[in-house]
Amino acid sequence: MPLINQEKCNQCQLCISVCGCGAIVMVNNVVTVVETEDCHWCTTCEAVCPTGALTCSFEIVVEEG
């Protein structure tokens, strides 16, 4: 799932507004990522985050054969 660095997060909630799968929610007034199989790694949350707090990292692998 996307990762949130709470030290960088300014709680603007832009990521919540753009997330189409409900993976990012407010829990006790804190932006929180919840586990869901519906996340398609669109990385829009990372793109809109103004502080770079939210990251969607990729593993890069070489296909065998």
């Binding site: 990372e46 770079g52 969607c56 990292s57 990729f58 890069i60 692998v61 070489v62 065998e64």
Partner: peptide, 17 residues
């Protein structure tokens, strides 16, 4: 440079990185 073979953990990268 950052590609692995899928068996050993490698450094993950974001598009921003």
């Amino acid at each position: 440079t950052h590609a692995g073979d899928g068996t050993t953990p490698v450094q993950r990268l974001t598009q921003q990185e």
